[in-house]
């Protein structure tokens, strides 16, 4: 059962709310401090993706965030957007747009403000899940267990690996 469960309206301000709550719960669960930055960024990216989708397709419904503190610190961010949209629309390709190509395109192109806005959106949409994949070792993107939508599940270890005992003979694995 989830330790903390949040439902946020799809607004950018509450992406920050979710991030703050996740960091607070993670810290309380005794997670290694070095993982906190990664958790804040990963939860922010997963919530940004869900909030962006809800704003386009389902503005009246809430984004679900579940935080569980054992045996691993686990975060599940679930949107309620039907999965019959294309994977690119759902932000599920996980493919990083090539930043060099993206910037070079404007040098050859018109360099208009519209061009710059397209680049901004491509980075924000394309990088989100790819950044998650690059950050989080344990990441699953699956159909939401109940009803429509997609669940992004991430987890981190709660206890650091035990230090080798001084003088102990370690089996060769």
């Amino acid at each position: 059962m989830a330790t903390v469960r949040l439902e946020i309206s799809p607004t950018p301000a509450h992406v920050r709310t979710a991030r703050l709550v996740a960091a607070a719960v993670a810290r309380r669960s005794g997670i290694d401090e070095v993982l906190l930055d990664e958790i804040r960024l990963a939860v922010g990216e997963a919530c940004s993706r869900a909030v962006g989708l809800h704003r386009m397709h389902s503005p009246q419904t809430l984004v679900h965030v579940e935080l569980t503190d054992g045996p691993r610190f686990t975060v599940v961010v679930t949107d309620a957007v039907p999965r019959d949209l294309a994977p690119t629309e759902l932000g599920l390709t996980g493919a990083m747009p090539d930043p060099v190509a993206l910037v070079a395109a404007s040098a050859a192109g018109t360099g208009s403000a519209e061009d710059a806005e397209i680049a901004e959106d491509s980075i924000a949409a394309g990088v989100g899940l790819a950044l998650l994949a690059g950050l989080v070792d344990d990441l699953d993107v699956v159909s939401a267990p109940h009803g429509v939508g997609t669940a992004v599940r991430m987890s981190w270890p709660l206890t650091p690996p035990a230090a080798p005992v001084r003088g102990a003979v370690r089996p060769f694995l």
């Binding site: 710059a116 680049a119 901004e120």
Partner: peptide
């Protein structure tokens, strides 16, 4: 990151 890339494109133009 997207905003920084947008800024880069604007100055390069």
């Amino acid at each position: 990151l997207g905003v920084l890339v947008g800024g880069l494109k604007r100055v390069r133009a």
